[in-house]
Structure formats: C-alpha cells, structure tokens
Amino acid sequence: NDLETALKDVHDLNEGLSGTVRLTAPTVAGRLFLDDLITGFAKEHPAMAIELIYDEAKVDLVTSGIDAAIRAETLLDPDTYAFPIGPTQQMTIVASPDYLAESPPLEEPADVAVHSGVCFAIAGADKLAPWVFAGTDGPYSVMPHPKIVTNNVTSILESAKAGLGLAYIFASSVESSLADGRLVQVLEGQTAALPRFSLNYLSKRNMPPRVKAFVDYAKRYNP
C-alpha cells in the first residue's frame, strides 16, 4: 500500500494534481462551513476527487488511510499538525415555551444546573460537550442534568422543540426555530463563543501533492 501511494504521488507530480483527498469531519462542520469549502476546492482542482465522511467518532490518522481530519481542538492527535479552519461559532441556549413554562426560572448560568438538558456526546455517552459561559475571570462551564444524550445536532434541535429540556447549540442552527416561536432563547449574551475547528494532518514532510493542495486551499479559505 505504501509503495502504491508513493508511485501515485510521483505520478501526481509528473502529471499535475489529481487523485483523491480523503477527509473526515463531525457532521455539524458540513453545514457550518465545510460543504462550502469542499465545493470551492473541487472547482479549483477539477481533476481531483474528494471523499468526505461525516462521522462523530475520532479517526486514527495513522491507520485509517484518511489524509486529514476536521476536529475540535480537544480531539487533535498528538505529534501531528493542525491549524484553525472555519469561523468562530457562537453558542446559545434554547428551550421550548412549554418546557420553560413548567421549569424553574433562568436568570444566570448557575441556574442551568437544576434543569434537564439535551446534551451532545463528544466520543461516547460518557463524555459530554461542556456548556461554556463567559465570565469575568474567563470561560467556565455549568452542566444541566442530562435528559437526552446524542451526537447529532438535528436530534438535539428536535428534542428541544419537543420540550425535553434546555439545549446548548450553535446559534446559526436555531434561527428559524426562534423566528417561528418553537424555541425561545435564554441567558442571551452569556454563552461563550467556541474556538474554531482545526484541520489535523500527519506531516509537513513528504506530504502528497493532493493533500498539500487541500491544506493550502484551506489556509486561504475565508467564509
């Protein structure tokens, strides 16, 4: 396999950019920015193919055959390279009107601790994404009692609409639901923005031309 890859890379150098770039990313990255980035890259390099698998699980870059992974900073592989990609994401907390009518009041982040929550599982149900708030001494986390745990943003949104608890979610994901009144924003202005995603890859040395082309394009991408 290594020999075939090396021969393909030599062919790429001699014939121009071609081949397949293999990527993995969490599902939410697609809607937020990655689908747009891939479209631009594909148009700029029409002889290249892209395999993009959306998967919440962390993939081993060494053994999987994946060229690069889009990940949160906390999931980067050791001894690899990474740089920020995509926009900073503002988070918000929402709930259905029915849930809020029957639940304790929410006046400050500490109040979240007595509520039910629809929580995002990072790498399994035993590791939940923290709910991060902006404090005078820096970001801090307050978690609700997990009522629903899932690794799918659409499921989080639907569970919140069904009145199953508070949801901590990308602000861009709930605009239409806030507009039609199915969800209500709470603790407005008190959540902290999340860091940008990172593009994680193995090595700067002996990088296949197809991967270098994608890395170079991603560094220039400005959503």
Rank of each mutant, 00 (worst) to 15 (best):
S155H: 14
N14Q: 12
S96P: 10
T136S: 10
A101H: 02
L194Y: 13
A125P: 02
F170L: 08
T150Y: 04
A179I: 03
N1F: 07
A123H: 13
I85R: 00
G138V: 07
R210F: 08
V132G: 00
I122T: 09
V142A: 05
T63G: 01
N222H: 11
Q190A: 05
I148L: 10
I93Q: 03
I93Y: 00
F170A: 12
L37C: 12
T27R: 11
V28N: 14
G16I: 05
T88G: 02
G124C: 05
S96E: 01
E56D: 09
A113T: 12
L194G: 09
L199P: 11
F120Y: 13
K147Q: 11
D9V: 03
G16F: 04
A121P: 03
S96L: 03
I93E: 01
E73Q: 09
S177G: 03
Y99E: 07
E108N: 15
A129P: 01
I156F: 03
S116Q: 14
A125K: 12
Y217F: 15
Q90M: 08
G165W: 03
Y221K: 05
L7F: 08
T5P: 02
H145N: 13
S64I: 15
C119R: 07
D2F: 12
L202H: 13
L52P: 07
I66W: 15
V10M: 08
V112G: 13
R220G: 12
N14M: 12
V21C: 10
A213K: 02
S103Q: 11
P109I: 14
D60E: 14
D216F: 05
G135L: 10
V186P: 10
A113M: 07
K43D: 10
V132W: 09
V174Q: 01
D2G: 09
A134M: 14
A160S: 15
S155D: 08
A101M: 01
D126K: 07
A179Q: 09
E188Q: 07
D36P: 00
A171W: 00
